[in-house]
Design a protein around this nucleic acid. Structure first.
Lengths: 115, 115
DNA sequence: CGTTTGTACAACCATTTGGTTGTATACAAG
DNA sequence: CTTGTATACAACCAAATGGTTGTACAAACG
């Protein structure tokens, strides 16, 4: 299965930036396991509701979570596809290293190279 | 093969933060393919030598590149292992999602679960 | 209705980031 | 030894980040 819609530099910036914070990584982890409202999330961190709200906004801008309304709450859910895209960026770097002496053409032409 | 020495939150912060910049990702890419001195790197970016020096420092703090002296130059080389560790963090997130309805106990106890 | 709960958003603030220039030092080359 | 090159590092600056408080509004509740 291939998810890979190519990401712009700015999008990649946002994804890694969003992941570069413990609280935000924790929000992703939690909402990956089970969606939660912003206030449910906020209850578990030692900071204001508004601060958590901002963290969720950063994650949403990065596409790592989606938000949808349910009554007066906003339900947050992590997007595993976006996490997979981030992982794929690192995989591509690693592939680059593995093939660093080789000719990229062959790798691209190789019909066994898929994901 | 297991690389996984567990990373602290601060270390993970540094790794993702370091990757959240186009210039730094490009430096990683380049020095993954072929080591380069700081001035060789600096020549290719539209910013001062000092700015590139700082980017390399951020990458070094994150463990994504290593620097070693060669005469008067400082040779920069990307560390594929650290990139693999970063990837593994995302893989673990994805696994969490995959197993989200399952009982974690069983997974931990399963003798076939190894890496 | 009025009250409480959940969210949005603006204004503000300290710190960090990403860039600059300038100065100092180390090594290589004449 | 002198000169040029590669690097280090400090000081500075604007903008972004990560937090705060306060205000406003919408939905659920009594």
């Amino acid at each position: 299965m291939v998810v890979q819609t190519d990401l712009s530099d700015a999008e990649v910036d946002r994804i890694f930036r969003a992941l570069a914070d413990r609280t935000r990584r924790d929000i992703v982890r939690r909402t990956l396991l089970r969606e939660a409202s912003v206030s449910e999330l906020a209850a578990d961190y030692d900071m204001s509701f508004a601060a958590v709200q901002k963290h969720v906004a950063v994650l949403k801008e990065a596409g790592l979570v989606v938000k949808h309304p349910r009554g007066r709450q906003r339900i947050v859910r992590a997007d595993p596809d976006q996490i997979a895209r981030a992982r794929h960026l690192l995989v591509r770097l690693e592939e680059l290293w593995r093939d660093r002496f080789g000719q990229l053409d062959d790798v691209l032409a190789d019909p066994t190279t898929q994901e």
